[in-house]
Simulated scan of single mutants.
Amino acid sequence: MYCLQCLLPVLLLPKPTEHNSFFIHRLFIILYLISFFLERKPCTICALVFVTAVFLLCQSGGYSCIFWKNCETS
């Protein structure tokens, strides 16, 4: 799990409340993840653990997902 030490804080970033800054936040997260996976090349198990954590976080509550904004809360 050593290769995930830079990815775990991504799950803890607070989401912005404004629509314009949410787009920039989502773009930053996606570019950070792409560059991390291209540069560090984490092992398959760590990548699966991270993807599973993101999937479970997004499925447990719409507002807690880091990739989209829940329309019901705005």
Rank of each mutant, 00 (worst) to 15 (best):
V49A: 03
F55H: 06
S60G: 15
F28D: 07
E18A: 10
P16K: 00
L13E: 15
I45P: 01
C6E: 15
G61F: 13
F23T: 08
C46M: 06
F37L: 07
C43L: 05
Y63S: 15
N70Y: 09
Q5F: 08
K41P: 02
R40C: 06
I29D: 00
L57S: 14
M1F: 13
I30M: 08
E18Y: 06
V51C: 11
P14G: 08
C71P: 14
Y63G: 14
S64W: 08
L33Y: 03
C43G: 09
Y2W: 04
H19D: 07
L13A: 09
C3A: 14
L7E: 00
S21A: 13
C58G: 12
T52F: 13
P16S: 07
T17D: 15
L27Y: 12
S74R: 06
A47L: 00
R26K: 13
F37Q: 03
I34M: 07
L11F: 08
F23K: 06
I66P: 00
E39Q: 07
S21T: 09
S60I: 12
L38W: 04
F37N: 07
S60L: 14
A47T: 13
F22V: 07
C6F: 11
M1G: 12
K15C: 15
I45Y: 05
W68D: 10
K41G: 01
L7I: 09
F37R: 04
L48Q: 06
L56Q: 13
I30Q: 06
E39W: 12
L48I: 02
L8T: 08
L56D: 04
C6N: 11
L56V: 09
K69Q: 14
T73S: 14
I34H: 03
